[in-house]
Simulated assay, not measured.
Amino acid sequence: MNRFHVHLNVTDLDAGIRFYTHLFAAPPTVHKPDYAKWMLDDPRVNFAISNTGRAPGIDHLGIQAADADALQDLGRRLDAAGGSVVPEEATICCYARSDKYWTEDPQGTRWETFHTLGDATTYHAGDAACATDGAACTPKPGEMKPKVEQGMPCCAPQSACC
Rank of each mutant, 00 (worst) to 15 (best):
N2D: 15
N2E: 14
H5P: 03
V6D: 05
H7I: 07
L8Y: 05
L8P: 01
N9V: 06
T11F: 03
D12S: 11
L13M: 04
L13G: 03
D14W: 02
G16K: 01
I17S: 03
I17Q: 02
F19R: 05
F19D: 03
F19Y: 12
T21R: 01
H22Q: 13
H22S: 13
H22E: 14
L23E: 05
F24D: 01
A26L: 09
A26E: 11
P27N: 08
P27H: 08
P28W: 08
V30L: 10
V30Q: 09
H31Y: 13
K32A: 03
P33T: 07
Y35F: 15
A36F: 02
A36R: 01
K37Y: 10
W38Q: 05
M39N: 15
V45C: 06
A48V: 03
S50V: 07
S50R: 09
S50K: 11
T52D: 09
T52I: 12
G53M: 08
G53C: 08
G53D: 10
P56H: 09
P56Q: 11
P56T: 10
G57M: 04
G57Q: 04
I58H: 07
H60Y: 08
L61R: 03
G62L: 00
A66W: 03
D67Y: 00
D67T: 03
A68V: 09
D69N: 08
A70F: 01
L71F: 06
Q72H: 15
D73H: 12
L74Y: 09
L74M: 12
R76F: 06
R76L: 13
R77S: 15
L78A: 04
D79F: 12
A81C: 04
G83D: 01
S84Q: 09
S84I: 07
V85R: 00
V85D: 00
V86C: 00
P87W: 00
E89T: 08
E89P: 02
A90V: 02
T91N: 00
I92D: 00
S98Y: 04
S98T: 06
D99N: 07
K100Q: 09
Y101K: 02
T103Y: 00
T103C: 07
T103W: 00
T103G: 01
E104I: 02
E104P: 00
Q107F: 13
T113V: 15
T113N: 07
F114T: 14
H115Q: 14
H115P: 11
H115K: 13
T116W: 12
L117T: 08
G118P: 06
D119W: 08
T121Q: 14
T122M: 05
Y123N: 05
H124D: 11
H124T: 10
A125Y: 04
D127G: 13
A128Q: 13
A128L: 14
A129F: 08
A129M: 11
A129D: 07
T132S: 04
A136S: 15
P139V: 11
K140D: 14
G142N: 10
E143V: 13
E143I: 12
E143N: 15
K145T: 15
P146W: 14
P146A: 15
V148P: 06
E149F: 14
Q150H: 14
Q150F: 13
P153N: 05
P153C: 04
C154W: 04
A156E: 04
P157K: 04
S159D: 12
A160N: 10
C161V: 09
C161A: 10
C161H: 03
